[in-house]
Design a protein around this nucleic acid. Sequence first.
DNA 1: AGCGTCCGCTTATGCGCATAAGCGGATCGG
DNA 2: CCGATCCGCTTATGCGCATAAGCGGACGCT
Lengths: 348, 348
Amino acid sequence: MRISGSGRSGRSRVSQADIARQAGVTQAAVSMILRDRADGIPEATRERVLAIARELGYRADPLARRLANGRSQIIGVFTYEKVFPVAHRTFYHRFLLGIEEAAEAHDQDLLLFTSAAGRRDGNSGGVRTIYASGENKLRLADAAVLLGRDEIPAELEQLSADQYPFVFIGRRFLADGREVPSVAPDYAAATRALTQRFAALGHRKIAYLGADQSLPASIDRLSAITASELDAQLHFAPVSEVDEALLHRLLDAGVTGLMLENSEYAELVGGLATKVGADRNAHLSLAVAGLTEEDGADTPWSGFTVPGYRIGHLAVEDLLAQLEGAPPGCRLVPCPEAPGRTLTAVPR
Amino acid sequence: MRISGSGRSGRSRVSQADIARQAGVTQAAVSMILRDRADGIPEATRERVLAIARELGYRADPLARRLANGRSQIIGVFTYEKVFPVAHRTFYHRFLLGIEEAAEAHDQDLLLFTSAAGRRDGNSGGVRTIYASGENKLRLADAAVLLGRDEIPAELEQLSADQYPFVFIGRRFLADGREVPSVAPDYAAATRALTQRFAALGHRKIAYLGADQSLPASIDRLSAITASELDAQLHFAPVSEVDEALLHRLLDAGVTGLMLENSEYAELVGGLATKVGADRNAHLSLAVAGLTEEDGADTPWSGFTVPGYRIGHLAVEDLLAQLEGAPPGCRLVPCPEAPGRTLTAVPR
DNA sequence: AGCGTCCGCTTATGCGCATAAGCGGATCGG
DNA sequence: CCGATCCGCTTATGCGCATAAGCGGACGCT
């Protein structure tokens, strides 16, 4: 029993065959005419067919199109985070914006994927998954940009094995150590530059505060710090656990500079620091190792900015290049320095 | 020249036919086994085929699937606004959230559409369009939810004519006067109730302030107001043009209550009103005819709340019903009253 | 007149999958 | 011992479209 039995459902009302029948030609002729491949077809027929197509309100089925010729002019965006709920909203926002605009510029349609969450595996309800019910749903698109911190490694392996063209936003590695095609902020270089700014301003002992130490982004930052000439303490604590006591301990230890993982920490620590600093009449410079473009060019925070917009753009362009046969690559994008006012010289 | 010549592109590596070949059966048998329609197929073959499928990393092509059986378990979301900027703006956010969750609950995938903007028509760059290059791109999904204020009427006509299953969020009308399938806040009823609250508190003369007077949502509100027992002035001005002078004029005219189109006006007018009210020692009650759930249940604002989350849910459920053959309808969803603290009795 | 050429299409095929219908062989009932 | 049944698949077909290849007729050329 066909679906069409229960109503017209998703079916197209009118197909090329319908037009062909009315125009007294074949479906193939209609296809050629509609695609403007009608080299040798006289104007009269052309116009007749086009007229009938218009009259019948013909609309091509993008699906059949893709099935037949392999391209749909659609690129996918898959997030391993809920797009709509607020989580990390500001962080991902710019990436998405960049992707959207680049897609528009290259005349590609954009498809945002949301998966029915994997109830099957019974764990947290918010997990997205690409492979479900035996399908690779990304295949609706010619290629896809992936993002989000909680990606499923097995899926990246699978995509890779499937030869599906994709880029990840942010660096990721496969089990065998190979790096996944990506466009990512160059945290290593930016952090290195930031440590040098600390050093140049007379800082000798600094601390780093963040939530994560396992993502490539964090690893890149941390190793840049430990490789620097500075004496650095590393602290990992969720934002909720950061308090004045911590700052006191840092100052006690002789720390003069604090590098924060992101704006969220900055938001919180900013208030505490001025207070604690004032109380003890001590100096504490702050810098953010990953401001968002949302923070604005004139943000008071010192540090560097993650060029999300640009990264989104590059990701799309990389995909299009892949579709043209270019090999996938891993691009690092420089993070512009944010001068700000929170990183200053150590008073002597 | 096939695309596949320039690389494996979007093509699937392995198809059912590949499995079939290796397993020594036909593609049809593989299909049956994978779809669990393998009524009379012995366990041995089943397992052999499944094993090979796994080994080869077979993934079904959702596109071909849909082409063959008419359903893809995907519902589309099309906004006539930029998605990403909008997603974090408060008004559409809740709708999208509701849609997302409902889709998840019903095991449907969600596809957000973004169109390459219509450069062709040369006008504003942000216009989305469903019909482009002769395709109806919504057809990638079984059905779709549409939203956004600047919809293109012709496209709704077209969708309607195409018998494509969709619902609009908000009321919309076709050229011939018929209403488009929709789920919408019941602005008329909510506004009526709000005028009654004003009246019950002793207000006799109120004013309405908003930006729009042509959308159905506004029309519903306005006619509820003018049909009420209250003496009402209507003012239309963009938020940017609202100033103290306006409030002075209202008070001069004996207005004691002001109804605002949305939270944006509230934000602005709130400040002005307390100042002006205090200056002149006059009373001015405020109410918002369309708070967002983002405003929270304990918002200080009086008025009513647009149940975006619920509407999103209903929209999805309506679509699924349509796909089962139910006729499309126009559902009005009641807007819960927000008591708030800005609507009070007129001092005598 | 005979042959090549070009026009204006048509025929055939395939994309990957689902599904109705068929079919040869074994088994079973009578 | 023959027909009926069932098993375990296969064959055929179509979804809507794109495209390579073919083909009949008109026309031109020599």
